[in-house]
Amino acid sequence: MLRYIIRELLRHRLGLICLIILTVLYAATILSQFLAPYLPTDQDLKHAYHPPTKIVLQDWWPHVQVYERVDPSAARYEPVAGETVPLRFFAPGEEYSFLGLFPTNTHLFGVDEPHRVYLLGSDATGRDVFSRLLYGAQVSLSIGFIGILVTMSLGFAVGSAAGYFGRYVDFLAMRLVEFVIAIPSLYLLIALRGALAEYFDPEQMYLLIVLILSLIGWAGAARIIRGMALSLRERPFVLAAEVMGQKSGRILMRHFLPNLASYLLVAATLSIPVYILAEASLSFLGLGIQEPGTSWGLMLKQAQELKVFTLGLWWLLTPGAAIFVTVITFNMLGDVLRDIVDPRHQMGED
């Protein structure tokens, strides 16, 4: 089944494009320390709200344009005519551990101090937005995966148990599901965050967010899995297993799980963006990832300043674009997967 899905996916043009985009995104996230020229916390107050630096070709080598601050109060920078510094590849910088394997201080690119290269400009304290975007991706992109791992397990456990055992287990589980679904999710998210924050350090906020998202997200999956389990229960192979005296736990794992696997795969792909968006929303409200950590939502929160709007400092909104690209790619991939797994589901197709 899995091999079939992968083969079909690679044959599907849109699916292939989505896979490539996601591979690039995740590769960049894993290599973020190498790709980012600076640390996400690396401040430079002399270069606050710096616009993206122009890269010019000079003597057949890319050079970085040098800027001069014209008006510190309005964050206005003008390029200094004719003054550039060469861009260095594999430049030395802050020390880090490459993929956790060996320590190094080589970054993909950089410029000599005191000049700075800002591919996507800088924020209020002169931190490099491009570097922060890469480091923020570590949070924003991983949270979806960990989130679905927990919720899909929970959803499968509750849903298949409710469908298989029926009766009061079913009744209790479904009332609980309805309860969780009845509350607008962001209300519940914020309330849970308020209640549980005390028990977590700011550094553990990542864990807390995953926990909260999982507490909410399992309900929808559980309800659908229950429906599928209801019909699976009557199938001959399940009945046969029962007659032969298999334990219910084993039946759930050996007979239900493989039959629900393709649904779980599609549902997981389609719910990753939900978690990415939820983390971004929480961090955006100041309830998620805290300084000195960074995530895309937090970066957008920090961009929420009058100066940014009136001066049109668009580069501070790039995390939003990053979220958008990730979410739309996951959504498309999920739809493609659904079409492969369940061809009847194609909406409105002949």
Partner: peptide, 12 residues
Amino acid sequence: AALSVPEFFLAL
């Protein structure tokens, strides 16, 4: 695109 853009980003 409209389904994938976060509301708060659109608001910003």
